[in-house]
Design a protein around this nucleic acid. Sequence first.
DNA 1: GTCTATACCAAGATAGAC
DNA 2: GTCTATCTTGGTATAGAC
Lengths: 211, 211
Amino acid sequence: MDKPVDKGTEQQILQAAHRVIVRRGKSGTRMQEIADEAGVNKALLHYYFRSKDKIYHAILRNVASELFRSLLDSLDFSLPFYQLISDFIRLHIGAIRNNLDLFQFFFSEIWTNRAEVLPVFLEVLSVSEGRLPELFFARVNRAVYEKEIRPVDPLNLLLNIISLDVFFFVASPLIIELMELPESELQRMFDERALQVTDFVWESIKYRGEQ
Amino acid sequence: MDKPVDKGTEQQILQAAHRVIVRRGKSGTRMQEIADEAGVNKALLHYYFRSKDKIYHAILRNVASELFRSLLDSLDFSLPFYQLISDFIRLHIGAIRNNLDLFQFFFSEIWTNRAEVLPVFLEVLSVSEGRLPELFFARVNRAVYEKEIRPVDPLNLLLNIISLDVFFFVASPLIIELMELPESELQRMFDERALQVTDFVWESIKYRGEQ
DNA sequence: GTCTATACCAAGATAGAC
DNA sequence: GTCTATCTTGGTATAGAC
């Protein structure tokens, strides 16, 4: 089905640029490295994209939509609350594992390049999504009202879940070194992380009757 | 007490370098910017430090020890477990707030410069500390045994707490934009974060009798 | 469209006067 | 120890042949 390897030079360049920029960050990226990785001449990068800035922006938009697409897999807000957060955490962590490099890139660039990065992400986010938080907040409030869970602040709950999902993976290379875990053990923690988080969160919020 | 402003040129340069490197990251840093900020000539940077790499390494070690020092304020492991994690979280979050720029720098550099950054941090960590995790793990196991808390995996508990502490602050500029929170509201969340996390964690782990 | 060659410039580094 | 001037490198960008 696929054309052999030739997806057109422009695509070649874009894909190479994606890899290099995600790996090195903006100021660490060299046009030469992109050219090498794309198997074309440096001059061609400028022929197609005019400048490094232009390439960077193109990649930034790609990364942003990949990231958000990966986070917005369909959630069913009518499920029981335990099921909902269980699904949410599982999908979320799955997405993070599949796009670890993008998350790491994102957290690297957001500080050194905030002015450039934030607008792109906000724009992509606003078209692609918009009101996931509102839906979630409403569902949390209903769950409290219907005594599925104890009273909690929805925003803090969402942030807590995201913290537990994201940080572990973003920090994993560190954890490996600090804890001197064998690779196999880390792999196991990766696999179990979703269940672990779901359990931790649910134990914290589930309704247990008036205390 | 303090000498007026002249702490010696070398110190001037180090302090300027610290600010610039933390702000821009390694590859974003320009020797000229350091020189300007230190109020000296570019050539002097090389006179004192030979190369940009050397300066970067010096700053890296500084940052590493500042970060760890900030995280290792005395903990009293003989306190009741609730008191212990309450203290731990409060101290930890306090340290993060006071050194937000260092944390952000760290999470930026660790990905683009892993090979350079990790060894420095591991070395500084190994001399300055060593066995905080072990002490914590032992205390958790005792708390489980003595039915202060439900059975939990100590490593996961530690990682969960750190996630909840760190991520919120590292991601705060994003949260502001995404949630369109007013600055005042964010400030309030900052102030309450330690209590919020303590509550969330404690509700999850506290012993409630055989279920 | 793709290449070679080269212009141009910014940045790290050094020489040498003071 | 500090400066000015300069070298060198390497990176972005362009001109022009094919």
